[in-house]
Simulated assay, not measured.
Amino acid sequence: MRENWKKQKTVEELKKELTPLQYEVTKQNGTEPPFQNEYWDNTEEGIYVDIVSGEPLFSSKDQYDAGCGWPSFTKPIQRSELKENLDTSFGMRRIEVRSKTADSHLGHVFDDGPGPDHARYCINSAALRFVPKDKLKDEGYEEFLSLFR
């Protein structure tokens, strides 16, 4: 069931609820290995939500195989739920993508995608939870069923 995420969770609460990898990715800006993560090749219809807050982030309708080994999307469901920051770690210059509600590190956005905005949201599976189309209503995401009609 979709939970209303109203307060910041403590480190202890998050460490109980998340796997070590999910915590490392979302709260310590980690990255999971390419091609060895849950959703890089998912082809099922549904939406992806923030593993911490449950806020809707991406639709499988906007997912494509970018060949990078992580789930890639041309756009978010709601741009207002994402924030972007300049990331100069590891001697690179990239745009980090974080969720606004839970401040989860999600991944990065690049300008080499196939969509009209050329965006490629390269997102860690460990930052996401997939909600299949046939479970959207049961889990409180009924308003997103229209994406699949």
Rank of each mutant, 00 (worst) to 15 (best):
G67W: 06
E139W: 00
S80I: 07
V131Q: 10
D103Y: 01
F73C: 07
P132N: 01
T43C: 05
K135M: 06
Y39V: 09
T101K: 11
V25A: 01
W40S: 02
G69H: 11
N37W: 00
S89K: 12
D112M: 06
Y121C: 11
E45W: 02
K27P: 00
D138Q: 06
V52F: 13
Y23V: 04
P71L: 11
K135I: 00
G30N: 05
G107V: 03
M92H: 14
G69C: 02
T88G: 07
P33I: 03
F58T: 05
D138V: 01
K9H: 13
E13F: 06
G113W: 13
Y23P: 08
D103C: 06
P76N: 15
P116I: 07
T26Y: 05
S59L: 09
T88K: 15
P116H: 02
E12W: 00
S104W: 01
D87A: 05
R79W: 13
E38W: 00
F73N: 05
A127N: 03
D134K: 08
H105R: 01
S125A: 11
D50Y: 09
H118G: 04
F73E: 05
Q28P: 00
F35W: 05
H105V: 10
K16V: 08
K7P: 00
K61A: 12
G67Y: 07
E45P: 15
F90R: 14
P33K: 11
A119D: 13
Q78P: 00
L82I: 10
V49I: 14
H108T: 12
E13W: 07
N42H: 14
N85R: 03
K7Y: 09
A127S: 15
D65E: 13
E17I: 04
D103M: 12
I77Y: 01
Y48I: 12
E3L: 14
T74Y: 08
L21P: 14
K16C: 00
A66T: 02
E96K: 14
V109Q: 05
S99T: 08
E45M: 01
L82P: 12
Q8S: 11
H118K: 15
E17L: 12
H118E: 07
R93H: 10
Q28Y: 10
W40T: 04
E32A: 08
I51Y: 09
